[in-house]
Simulated scan of single mutants.
Amino acid sequence: MTENINHEHTEKTCCTPTRGGRKDTLYQQSDNVTQVRAEIDPVDIPGGTSFLGTDAPQILGDGENPMRRKKLKPFRIGATTVSNKYFAEFVAATGYATEAETFGWSFVFWTDIPAQLRYTKGVDGVEWWRRVDGSNWKDICGPSTQEHCWSPDHPVVHVSHNDALAYARWRGGRLPTEAEWEHAARAGQGDVRFPWGERGPDDTEVFPCNIWQGSFPNQNTCADGWRTTAPARSFEPNAFGLFNMIGNVWEWTSDTYKVKSLKKSVRKSLDSMRGFKVLKGGSFLCHRSYCYRYRIAARSGNSPDSTTTHQGFRVVWDF
Rank of each mutant, 00 (worst) to 15 (best):
H9I: 15
E11M: 13
C15R: 08
L26A: 14
V33L: 06
I40Y: 08
V43Y: 02
P46G: 14
G48P: 10
L52F: 10
I59N: 00
N65V: 00
P74D: 02
I77A: 13
G78E: 13
N84R: 13
N84P: 10
N84A: 05
Y86A: 07
V91M: 02
T94A: 07
E101V: 11
T102H: 14
W105E: 00
F109G: 11
W110V: 03
Q116N: 01
R118V: 02
R118D: 04
G125R: 13
V126L: 13
W129L: 11
D133H: 05
D139Y: 08
V156N: 10
G173R: 15
P176K: 14
T177M: 11
H183Q: 08
A187C: 10
G188P: 04
G188F: 04
G197S: 12
C209H: 01
N210H: 08
W212K: 04
P217I: 09
T221P: 03
A223V: 02
D224S: 12
A230Y: 12
A232C: 14
S234W: 07
E236F: 11
G247H: 03
G247W: 08
V259W: 10
K268R: 14
S269N: 01
S269C: 10
R274L: 05
G275C: 07
G275N: 04
F276T: 09
L285T: 06
R288M: 01
Y290K: 02
R293A: 10
S300N: 04
P304V: 06
T309P: 10
